[in-house]
């Protein structure tokens, strides 16, 4: 009676049942050790059960690493100077690799508007266009031009329409 905190009945009334003494959250440390022991081979479950502190640390490390890679530090740039013999070795290696490769074919050119003509004299010595055809082309073009000039927009409806807003 009047006892606010007593550990005496801890052992007697446990029996796996939940009471006011039962932890709502499972103890992370003890829980982890058991899980790690049980599934030590399984990496994923192990990673999931890492203590909170390590999680935080790794997250911080990740942030640090990301920041470091995103920083442009010109002074810290190290120019990898290639040794002379290393350079020659690599050149030789690439040449060998290319030689050993299969035969390479020149890519086909995309069709061009202007093409080379093999026998230009044939085209140049061809019959010129007849006067009748030339007249026909000229008149057709001038008619088309005149038609284009006369093209007008016919105004039928009002362009600005008032909406019936109440």
């Amino acid at each position: 009676m009047g006892c606010c905190f007593s550990c005496k009945d801890d052992g007697s009334n446990q029996g796996g049942e939940a009471n006011e003494r039962t932890h709502l959250l499972v103890d992370p440390v003890s829980n982890n050790t058991t899980i790690q022991r049980v599934s030590s081979e399984d990496y994923s479950s192990c990673a999931r059960s890492l203590p909170k502190k390590t999680d935080e640390q790794s997250a911080l490390n990740q942030i640090l690493q990301e920041t470091a890679t995103n920083v442009i530090d010109v002074a810290a740039l190290d120019s990898h100077v290639l040794e002379q013999h290393e350079y020659h070795e690599r050149v030789k290696h690439y040449a060998q690799k290319l030689q050993s490769g299969s035969r390479w074919t020149v890519p086909r050119r995309t069709p061009c508007l202007l093409l080379d003509v093999p026998a230009p004299e044939k085209f140049l010595s061809a019959e010129p266009l007849s006067v009748g055809n030339l007249d026909l082309i000229t008149s057709a073009v001038s008619k088309a031009n005149a038609a284009l000039q006369e093209l007008k927009v016919e105004h039928k409806e009002d362009l600005v329409v008032p909406f019936r807003i109440p």
Partner: peptide, 21 residues
Amino acid sequence: DGVPVIKVANEKTPELAMRPS
């Protein structure tokens, strides 16, 4: 690293511009 895999050049090419450095 600037090591040529293939190159074609004429005599006007500045030699310095072809260096790996």
